[in-house]
Structure formats: structure tokens, C-alpha cells
């Protein structure tokens, strides 16, 4: 006999799986809408038949060449950033942690800005030079944070303080470049820092896909360790978790996912902070379900925001970073205050 408690637990898990399925379905629907809408109207029927190889040539070009990479990029970037934020909040036991609080994003911003000031942005391979430089500096920042935190035994407080210090350092360095840079460089830097998905192509999508499909499964595999870390270092250690290593691995993998995304998209704020919270409120803190669900909600948020961003003032585009905040913040605040009794204690 499994007992009543056991049956309730099965239902409890089933609800989580159901919620994940609903999110997945919603994402598929939203993606179909996203490839159909835009400056050129192709309609959902035309768009979907183009996806499966049918339709006229014009529709194919619009849907497959122009919209599909961007939609895929939004999905992957949203998923990667949301998963990173979830893991960072968990291993640092801090609801404010995100890829941004740890300096990874501002370091990527500096790397991109440096490449632009040095003239890479207008070269033919420029976009990859900018991205590579952003990635390198993001990785450098992670290692700096771990190195500094390790001096103090890799506690969560140590990591957060080191991360914030690194963040301010790289923002200051970026400001130096903006202050000294040529006008068109500064414009490019500001545009990059706002974050946007307009430069997405299949090459970039492939790179992001590779980075994410390495890092996310490795994170999900470690769900129990991540769960244990949220209980406190001592408790986790006594449950058999190598706390220092689990924290480091969690941070390295989530930084990798973050860097892999933002080196192409620019600093898309907020998805990494808010999606985990929204998802945690809906599905609970068990990382086995929380990480996949966060990926889906992050993808939904970013894809939704980007679709609005490129259509609402068409043909002008609003940078998606701005739109994510404008869409996400009211929703987040609503959930936070509606559920406050159960949430922050």
C-alpha cells in the first residue's frame, strides 16, 4: 500500500508535469503566431505550410529566412536566461540573483563594446568578433567571481559580493568606452546593451543551441543537489552533497548558458530574474520541474515580448530588452502581491 500521502505526492507531481505540458503547448502556439505576424502579412496558414516546405517563394523567404531564426533565437535565449537565473537564485539562496547581479552580463557588455570601439562591428565577420569578445569577457568575469569567492570558501554571500563588485567594474569600463568612443560606436554600444534579437540568423541559433543543450541537461541532472543547496550549506553537506563543488558547477554551467545567449542578443534584462520567480510560484521549488518549466516560461516571455516589440510600432522596432521589462514587470508584480502570503517569508 502506497498510502494516502504517497498518492497525493503522485498527483502533486502529475500537476507539475501537466503544467509543463501546458507551457509547451502555449509555446508552440505562440511560435506559430510569431512566424505569421510582422511587416509582411503571410497569415498563419501560409506561415505554417512554409515551415513544412510548402507555400510560395516569397512566403518561404519571409518565414524561413527572416522570422524563423529570430523566433528560435527568442525561444533559446529565453530558455537559457531563465534556467540560468533559476539555478543562480537556488545555489546562492538569494531571490535577487540573476545573470546580471553576478557581473556576467556587464562583462559581456564590455567585451562587445570593446570590439565595437576597436572597429569590429563594421567588418564582415564583425558580428562574430563582437559575440566572441562578449563571450570571452563573460567567461573571464565568471572566473573572477569564482576566484574571489573561493578565497572566502565559496559562500553564497561571498559570491554575490564578488559578483556585484565585478558588475560595477565592467559597467564603469563600458562607460569609459562610451565616454571616449566615436558617436556611431556609442550608438552601436547603447543599442547592443539594450538587447535585441534582430540580428538572429541560423548560424547564431546553432551556436546558442549547442551551448544550451550542453549546459541545461547537466543542470537538470543535478536537480537534487540544487534542491539541497537551498536548504543551507550545513544541511546540504549532511545530506551528502559536496556543497562547494555543487555550487561551483551550478554557477559555471549557468554562466556558460548566459554567456552563450547574451553574446548574440545583448543584455536582455529581466528574463533571468523574473521567469524563475513566476515559475516557482506556479510549480514550486523542486528543480527537477522548476528548471524545465522556467525554460518554457522564459521562452514564452521573451518570444511574446519580441513579437510585440517588432509589430507594435511596425515598421519601427522597440528593443526587446525594453519590451521584456514592460511586459514582464506588471505581470510579475501582480503575481508577487497576489501570492505574497505564500511567497516571501
Amino acid at each position: 500500500m502506497a498510502g494516502v500521502v504517497g498518492e497525493v505526492y503522485s498527483k502533486f507531481l502529475l500537476r507539475k508535469v501537466a503544467l509543463i505540458s501546458v507551457l509547451l503547448l502555449a509555446l508552440i502556439v505562440l511560435a506559430s503566431v510569431a512566424v505569421s505576424v510582422g511587416a509582411a502579412s503571410v497569415g498563419m496558414k501560409g506561415a505554417i505550410s512554409a515551415l513544412f516546405g510548402g507555400g510560395d517563394r516569397f512566403t518561404k523567404v519571409i518565414v524561413l529566412r527572416m522570422r524563423l531564426p529570430r523566433v528560435l533565437m527568442a525561444i533559446l535565449a529565453g530558455a537559457g536566461l531563465a534556467a540560468s537565473g533559476t539555478v543562480m537564485q537556488g545555489v546562492l539562496r538569494n531571490p535577487l540573483a540573476s545573470p546580471f547581479t553576478l557581473g556576467v552580463a556587464s562583462a559581456a557588455g564590455f567585451g562587445a563594446a570593446l570590439a565595437m570601439v576597436l572597429g569590429a562591428s563594421f567588418a564582415s565577420w564583425g558580428k562574430y568578433v563582437v559575440a566572441t569578445n562578449a563571450f570571452m569577457f563573460a567567461t573571464l568575469a565568471s572566473f573572477l567571481v569564482y576566484g574571489l569567492a573561493k578565497l572566502r570558501g565559496a559562500t553564497s554571500e561571498g559570491m554575490i559580493l564578488a559578483g556585484i563588485a565585478i558588475m560595477y567594474m565592467f559597467s564603469a569600463l563600458t562607460s569609459v568606452l562610451e565616454y571616449m568612443g566615436k558617436k556611431e560606436d556609442v550608438h552601436a554600444i547603447v543599442f547592443w546593451l539594450m538587447g535585441n534579437l534582430s540580428g538572429a540568423d541560423f548560424g547564431k541559433v546553432l551556436v546558442v543551441l549547442i551551448v544550451i543543450s550542453i549546459s541545461l541537461p547537466l543542470l537538470i541532472m543535478r536537480s537534487w543537489d540544487l534542491n539541497a543547496l537551498t536548504l543551507g550549506d550545513e544541511a546540504a553537506e549532511s545530506l551528502g552533497v559536496n556543497v562547494e563543488r555543487a555550487r561551483m558547477v551550478g554557477m559555471v554551467l549557468s554562466s556558460l548558458a548566459t554567456s552563450g545567449v547574451i553574446c548574440f542578443t545583448g543584455t536582455i534584462g529581466f528574463v533571468g530574474l523574473v521567469s524563475p520567480h513566476i515559475t516557482r510560484m506556479a510549480i514550486g521549488g523542486d528543480n527537477r520541474f522548476l528548471i524545465p518549466a522556467s525554460c518554457l516560461s522564459g521562452a514564452l516571455l521573451l518570444l511574446g515580448a519580441d513579437t510585440i516589440a517588432r509589430t507594435v510600432l511596425a515598421p519601427t522596432e522597440v528593443p526587446v530588452g525594453i519590451m521584456t521589462s514592460l511586459v514582464g514587470i506588471p505581470f510579475f508584480l501582480y503575481l508577487l502581491f497576489r501570492k505574497r502570503r505564500e511567497y516571501w517569508r
Binding site: 497525493v8 538569494n94 537551498t230 543551507g232 544541511a235 516557482r280 514550486g284 521549488g285
Partner: peptide, 13 residues
């Protein structure tokens, strides 16, 4: 341990 809070909401089970 001496004190246990749990950072995020978690059910007893």
C-alpha cells in the same frame, strides 16, 4: 542544524 528556514517556499513533504 540549529536553524532551518528554507530560502524558497517548500512543502513539508
Amino acid at each position: 542544524p540549529q536553524e532551518s528556514s528554507g530560502t524558497f517556499p517548500i512543502r513539508v513533504f
